[in-house]
Write a protein that binds this DNA or RNA. Sequence first.
DNA 1: AACTGATAATTCATCGATCATCAGTTGATT
DNA 2: AATCAACTGATGATCGATGAATTATCAGTT
Lengths: 230, 230
Amino acid sequence: MTDAAFDLGSDDIPALSTGEQAYERIRHDIVFGVLQPGQRLPLDRLKSVYGVGISTLREILNRLAPQGLVVAEGQRGFQVSPCSVTDLKELADLRLLIESNALAQSFQAGDVEWEGRIVAAHHKLARMEQRLLAGDESGTQAWKRYDFEFHQALVSACGSKALLDLHAGIYDRYLRYQMVFFVFWGPTSTEDHKALLDCALRRDAAEAQRLLHGHIHGCIDMALERGLVD
Amino acid sequence: MTDAAFDLGSDDIPALSTGEQAYERIRHDIVFGVLQPGQRLPLDRLKSVYGVGISTLREILNRLAPQGLVVAEGQRGFQVSPCSVTDLKELADLRLLIESNALAQSFQAGDVEWEGRIVAAHHKLARMEQRLLAGDESGTQAWKRYDFEFHQALVSACGSKALLDLHAGIYDRYLRYQMVFFVFWGPTSTEDHKALLDCALRRDAAEAQRLLHGHIHGCIDMALERGLVD
DNA sequence: AACTGATAATTCATCGATCATCAGTTGATT
DNA sequence: AATCAACTGATGATCGATGAATTATCAGTT
């Protein structure tokens, strides 16, 4: 989620290496559905598309594999991880488990700095949701990012780097389903986010977990009903 | 944990590729402390030690990085992930969170096949612990593996591949601390395992979670007391 | 017409070579 | 004597070439 492509003239930042750039692009293209689930990834084609050498490509794909975004079937190359209802449900449960726990710890340990972060993140998210409700469809991708940043901010005071890393990884995989299959789902989501913010400021972890449960399951239930996922 | 080096003459199995072999060896050497925490990993040296080319090596290290066993400090190569008390505690908490949850689901869904697996796994583990208590120190490594296999078996019926993968990954990182800093810690562990098995057969998830909590925290508390970890 | 076997073409895995980057050292200048 | 700059040796990052495996094609046979 680190959109580190904002090197606006800052000379001291050492400019992402070739491989790092390509890594971000490929990951982005998988998460955002440009490279579709199940699609094979012939090295020669990627080589010309992303403009890096074979070895660098293989490094990138090998980094993506343990994260669950690509699968490597030994001796037969790589392909984008396929999507399935089962996988989506498992990911949703996993995200709920991780995020609920992190939420509780974060609520307990959060200081004023943390409150500042979540208020700011919610503000940006709410603004974007206003625009979407007003019919401006252009910001869907940005909305997803602000959504992540808000949830990220909520758990950011949990005190465990390992837990945060894990959460980010799971969220990324979950995000792919959102990007590929879901759309913005209206006022329900907005209300959930507002309620979550209030819980956080009240430090009401139990209620927040209940909300999160509804938030996540509501989201995937709707998608399943609509038949958006095979 | 897949000690797949048992290709005893089975001709149809396509024999692990060069890279795969080296991957297993390097991961093994990190988990078992041959490559020590914080140690730098110069490519030329590894190249001669493990007998693979630069590119293959980099693929391997890039696979290990997202798993948390090596860290890549951009433009300055790789090193074995350093160890710290903080990290150990975070991992222990994480393992507890994941495994507790998986345990509960597994207890609910487990069938007779599953019961067979856990009984078998416990039997092997108990046998090994007998030998260790009798003073035979030779099997410490094997004990760690049986310990993993037992815990693995307990959660194996949880029904979520994503959850199982996650558990295996966390356990691997946790295992490194065990291998590097811990030793076999006597009858307490044996009793815990027996009690866990009984809980499983009774499907008493609550008690099992309580036991697991004590099992894990007892283990790291002892290590911290003894000052085994810096 | 369908099946099997060999052969051709595509794709992958592995490697060492080359170019870029970093750290330690030396030397010149103030 | 101290500081900064350029040099140099070492290490890492990237690349395309090469051999191996897999898949597709196509005869030849039943």
